[in-house]
Amino acid sequence: MNTAADITSWLPVALSDGLPDGGVMRVQTAGHDLALWRAHDHSVHCVDNRCPHRGMRLSFGFVRGNRLNCIYHGWQYGETGACAYIPAHPELTPPESLCVPTLPCVDHGGRVWITLDPDATALPAMPAHPGLRSVAVNVSQDRIQAALGSGALPSTTHPQRGCSARVLDTSAFDCRIALDVATGDTATLVVSIQSVSAERSQLHTQLTAAASVELKVAASRWLDALRDHLEATA
């Protein structure tokens, strides 16, 4: 079976809803330690998680306007990664060489994507569904893809929230799963897999339609069961 990495070099690293304006989060993938942030102009950015000044992790930083500020000495980095302001020396124009490396980063289809490939082609159109949640799983991306491909999915039992599940289809970017809920409701879950390391992944999940709180809870419980199932069979 094709893995996402065979076809696309874009990695989903967060749900769009999970990174609000002014938000900063740490992203780890394939040995890279990165900081993901969203400016107040709503644009998303990904930088090396290390401030060039004294090595502080930029994921501890804060956003003001359209700049990422390091928490240690407040150095400000603009959307290109260039250092724009050093609070200890406000009169100084930082040299162009003073910058933090960036990676291509886009907000697309309800997810934030990055790529380590500077020549990556643009992502195709895809619908932006509301985010459900991101789930950490202690299993490799390949094993998760194989498990979803096998079609052997867990079900949950509960008079209202119980769900049975089946895979609808799989693309290079995500997998769609139909959930049949005990109440008779149905929902479609879109699951994108991010490799974190050889043993860890993140599932970024969305529901294709606006859902009631009850339905979200049922889908979320089913995701817990999926994670337990993946970790138990790994």
Binding site: D33, N49, R50, P52, H53, R54, G55, M56, R57, F60, I71, Y72, H73, I86, A88, H89, L92, L98
Partner: peptide, 25 residues
């Protein structure tokens, strides 16, 4: 301490090219 435990690398670089000080440093 919340800073010190999140500086990368953990050891203090002695090569001046590894980090970028200014006059304040």
């Amino acid at each position: 301490r919340s800073i010190l435990e999140n500086q990368v690398p953990r050891k203090l670089p002695l090569d001046p090219r590894m980090e970028s000080p200014t006059r304040a440093d």
